[in-house]
Simulated assay, not measured.
Amino acid sequence: MHKLQVQGVHHITLTGADRQTSIDFWEGVLGMPFIFDQPNLDDPDEGHLYFDPGDGRLITVFTNEKRKPVHKRTPTDPGCVHHLALNVSHATFSQVAERLDARGIPHSGPKDRGFMDSIYFKDPLGFLIELACYRFEPPRGCSHADVMIEAHRDRVALGDYNIQEKHLAHAIERLVHRTQASLSGDREPKNPY
């Protein structure tokens, strides 16, 4: 027996409102280029809009001209999607609250998540969106996931409640030590002063 090994998210499809509301939100608020448009091949009464969230993957939205924005929180029952988190740079994150306020979009305000900062708000149909900004850059050749697993191990070993910046710093140092060669025979910390 073998696993069905996945290699990343191909796309996420959401149920949107009408076509223009969907374009206005995904491109006009979140800045995702609108790159592809066709009918929903499983329902001729719906459109299927494709947006690039910034990494070349896809967020797609089923639209229907009979669906209008309702602003009521979507269900969070077991089996439902709770929220969608999108990555933003620190420079953008520092502007999110101000830019949402300018549009009159209610939001959570910045939230400290230890390894990232987050802010939450709802799309026009009440689906919760999170804009997240990592507090670290992984070392060359490593991924955010590589840093997170190392930071998790450090957090558990120290008995800390959640991942904090000290765990991230230790994780990055260990990853660099493992992945980057050095001519030094002794790479332990030193104090030359």
Results as ranks from 00 to 15, higher is better:
182 S>D: 10
16 G>M: 05
118 S>W: 03
122 K>S: 09
124 P>A: 07
21 T>G: 01
159 G>C: 09
98 E>P: 00
34 F>Y: 15
11 H>M: 05
138 P>I: 10
49 L>C: 01
172 I>A: 00
187 R>T: 15
31 G>R: 09
129 I>T: 10
76 T>N: 14
63 T>W: 06
60 T>E: 02
99 R>S: 07
136 F>C: 01
116 M>T: 11
87 N>L: 11
105 I>F: 02
35 I>H: 02
188 E>I: 03
188 E>L: 12
32 M>A: 02
142 C>P: 02
27 E>D: 07
134 Y>E: 09
113 R>F: 08
36 F>Y: 15
18 D>K: 07
190 K>S: 12
97 A>R: 10
135 R>L: 11
22 S>G: 02
140 R>I: 13
45 D>T: 14
20 Q>R: 11
124 P>L: 05
181 A>W: 14
127 F>W: 00
29 V>D: 02
165 E>Y: 13
151 A>I: 07
167 H>L: 06
76 T>K: 11
33 P>F: 12
137 E>H: 10
161 Y>C: 05
71 H>C: 04
17 A>F: 06
81 V>Q: 03
41 L>R: 07
153 R>W: 10
183 L>P: 08
178 R>F: 07
89 S>M: 06
39 P>N: 09
155 R>T: 08
180 Q>E: 12
189 P>C: 13
123 D>E: 07
89 S>T: 15
96 V>C: 04
180 Q>P: 01
55 D>T: 13
69 P>S: 00
35 I>W: 04
58 L>T: 12
169 A>R: 11
78 P>G: 01
56 G>H: 10
153 R>M: 08
42 D>P: 00
130 E>T: 07
127 F>D: 02
159 G>S: 09
139 P>K: 09
150 E>H: 13
167 H>D: 07
187 R>A: 07
26 W>I: 04
49 L>A: 00
85 A>Q: 08
127 F>S: 03
60 T>D: 01
106 P>T: 01
82 H>N: 13
142 C>N: 11
9 V>I: 15
118 S>P: 11
167 H>E: 05
123 D>H: 03
47 G>C: 02
